[in-house]
Design a protein around this nucleic acid. Structure first.
Lengths: 147, 147
DNA sequence: CCGAATCCGACTTGATACTG
DNA sequence: CAGTATCAAGTCGGATTCGG
């Protein structure tokens, strides 16, 4: 509780940016930032296969630190997306699994995932094209004319 | 180009985290971080209605700085999601619109958006519950037992 | 009107060490 | 095994300023 930086940073007072028209989009944006935070989707996907233990998840993902795993898991739990079950045995055991809400989220997330997998080559190609074009014109021009 | 910090930060060499099984998930994660970066979804949504000018988007979203709008738009353009059209008139005019790829992305994004709008109350409630429970046990205990 | 460049604060992420 | 605490670095985002 010292830093108070690890929780959600959505300022409740700052929500009224301009008008009511954007409240839908902000909701979407908020969800996307929660699940788009680099680890959440990976975890949710793994958990979609079934209940998993802490280090099991850690091992499956590979590259995540305990800190980030704990943090992400707690945020997910906080949002009611995953359920945490502790078994106070001598070697402590904690299992995580998706809640019904989490399982529902899995559906649109996987849809997006399917899109991503299908179109990643397109995006990669687009980036290559863009970078090439940028590199070709930067030395002398801004971004207009040339042809 | 001084800082070179504004472009994508996905390390190409670091992609091989552990094994091949996670390559799908990392693709999803990558896409999610692109579109989950606080402004992309808002912009894509607005652009889904049709072609828009720079300050038009800025005004519609409200709360975004030129810097972020420019940056986000360029990243989106780089990924082949939006098309940029300049009209070199005396007051410069630049229009942005979704490409076909962008329009396709709009579909799963809107699905996720629908989910978000529908379940935001659930999540908010879950958060409230979690925070209340946390506040009730933190003063003396960690996260186990209590009852 | 569109956008680039700079400065700077805040949040995020990670490495490491320590506890139960 | 599971989780916390601390510290350092990297990235993001915003205000401001300047140019076409």
């Amino acid at each position: 509780m010292k830093d108070a930086q690890e929780r959600t940073a959505t300022s409740p007072e700052h929500t009224r940016v301009s008008d009511i028209e954007s409240h839908d989009c902000r909701a979407v944006s908020g969800i996307l930032q929660r699940i788009g935070d680099k680890w959440s989707v990976l975890i949710i996907s793994r958990l979609g296969e079934g209940s998993r233990r802490f280090n099991e998840i850690k091992r499956m993902i590979g590259g995540i630190s305990q800190r980030m795993l704990t943090l992400t898991l707690r945020n997910l739990e906080r949002d009611g997306l995953v359920k945490r079950t502790v078994t106070p045995t001598v070697p402590p055991r904690v299992d995580y699994e998706l809640t019904d809400l989490g399982k529902e989220l899995l559906i649109p997330v996987q849809a997006l995932g399917a899109w991503a997998i299908e179109h990643t080559p397109c995006i990669t190609a687009a980036r290559a094209r863009f970078d090439a074009a940028e590199a070709a014109e930067t030395p002398q021009q801004q971004r207009v004319s040339t042809g």
